[in-house]
């Protein structure tokens, strides 16, 4: 315990910066997932699953804010939620284009962005986990071990959806 406190207060350690960065990128990922969900309401599985797994990022934001307190950070535990005023408008817009095939190209682009964002978040967790190990901060390491697998699942989801839909979107116009 004493050693951990000692390491935490080491002059020049960048844990705070890493936590802040991850807190920001998880927040962005939650928002991106909710955006994809609203944007593709006519693709029902995208709509619901993106919402379900946005919740993981929201929970990660809360955990990061909690552990950030140990490092003297004041991070907002509340991630962006789905009650944005624009959501119903976006959902309505996508319902109007449901009869057209072309908008599905946007789906590929949006999934590509989710995959890229989630990959970034995943690397951020990697950095934080390594740091936690070096600093022997079991609490922080525990958070990394619980959250990071869900980031990987978000990434695999985006990859799988691209794989599943690409052929129909690209070949059958």
């Amino acid at each position: 315990m004493r050693a951990r406190q000692l390491l935490r207060s080491l002059h020049g350690n960048k844990v705070g910066a890493a936590l802040e960065e991850l807190h920001r990128s998880e927040n962005d990922l939650a928002a991106a997932l909710l955006h994809v969900s609203d944007q593709h309401k006519v693709d029902h599985e995208i709509f619901y699953v993106a919402r379900d797994i946005a919740r993981w990022s929201q929970e990660h934001v809360r955990r990061l804010a909690e552990v950030g307190g140990d490092y003297g950070l004041d991070l907002d535990p509340d991630a962006e939620d789905d009650a944005t005023p624009l959501a119903p408008i976006k959902q309505k817009g996508t319902e109007l284009t449901g009869r057209f095939h072309e908008p599905t190209l946007l789906l590929l682009a949006d999934l590509r962005r989710i995959h890229r964002d989630a990959a970034g978040v995943s690397l951020d967790w990697e950095v934080l986990a390594q740091t936690a190990q070096a600093m022997q901060d079991r609490e922080l390491l525990g958070v990394c071990q619980e959250c990071h697998p869900e980031t990987l699942r978000q990434m695999r989801w985006a990859n799988a959806k691209v794989k599943e839909t690409a052929a129909q979107i690209m070949v059958t116009g």
């Binding site: 006519v42 029902h44 009869r99």
Partner: peptide
């Protein structure tokens, strides 16, 4: 990919593909 499931088949009918 895995063979297309019924709900997705209907979605492809909906989008005209």
């Amino acid at each position: 990919t895995s063979p297309t499931h019924a709900m997705q088949i209907m979605r492809y009918v909906e989008d005209g593909s």
